[in-house]
């Protein structure tokens, strides 16, 4: 364990397989711990809210583990938080998954399900499972400068597994867009110190690992501005 490396809390709310997230963190030189303890989260240099599974169950587990206020407090402190997949969706105000559920409300917007029929009347396969491309919103080539997506090509492939997608209230929060069938949606967001991805960077090959690498570098610079 390298003491100067950023300490990352991978927030465990008992719903998902977190080992690949931990491996990715360690691969890029972060000390990562899978934890359900609010103190561990609050004391970390950075936190990752991962997740696969149902929105309602996730919020219930976060409540029961006393982690809802911890995550909100962590974000308020200004330290970097990364959301992945369901972890992205949980940051939003509400989801319609199996009835309306309140989310963490850190980012204004809502979470909706992919329709089962597209605008041409054809059936859409839900969930989306597999590789799809990410794009800069409005083809703005500068949008990914100074973000963890630095060095990623517009149109790069990432690995997705999801049935729901986000609709942020503020388009300026949108960092990437993705099109599934005929639906174009926000596939990552950047909101102050919070970055979150609908795809799994830790499952997205060498380019996905680059995102972890950039985020780790950002954290190292926060710890030691002289780097």
């Amino acid at each position: 364990m390298n003491k100067t490396n950023p300490r990352i809390a991978i927030i465990d709310y008992k719903l998902s397989n977190l080992f690949s997230v931990k491996h990715a963190c360690e691969f890029v030189g972060m000390n990562a711990e899978i934890t359900s303890s609010r103190d561990d989260v609050l004391n970390a240099d950075g936190a990752i809210l991962p997740g696969v599974g149902a929105f309602g169950d996730a919020m219930k587990n976060l409540e029961n583990l006393n982690l809802v206020s911890a995550i909100k407090e962590f974000v308020k402190s200004g330290k970097p938080l990364m959301g992945i997949c369901l972890g992205l969706q949980l940051l939003f105000s509400e989801s319609e998954e199996f009835g309306p559920h309140k989310g963490l409300g850190i980012i204004p917007g809502k979470v909706v399900k992919f329709p089962s029929i597209n605008s041409d009347g054809r059936v859409i396969k839900v969930p989306q499972i597999g590789w799809n491309t990410i794009h800069t919103p409005d083809s703005d080539p500068l949008k990914w400068q100074n973000t963890p997506l630095l060095g990623i090509a517009d149109g790069e492939f990432m690995y997705f597994v999801h049935s729901y997608y986000i609709i942020p209230d503020n388009t300026r929060d949108v960092l990437t867009t993705t099109t599934y069938d005929t639906i174009t949606y926000a596939s990552s967001i950047l909101h102050d110190n919070v970055i979150a991805f609908q795809f799994h960077p830790e499952k997205s090959g060498i380019e996905g690992v680059k995102i972890y690498k950039n985020w780790a570098l950002h954290l190292k610079k926060l710890n030691n501005p002289n780097i």
């Binding site: 080992f19 491996h23 360690e26 691969f27 690995y159 499952k203 090959g205 060498i206 996905g208 690992v209």
Partner: peptide, 8 residues
């Protein structure tokens, strides 16, 4: 393998 390979 899982420590250095980041695909499903």
């Amino acid at each position: 393998t899982a420590k250095e390979i980041f695909i499903p």
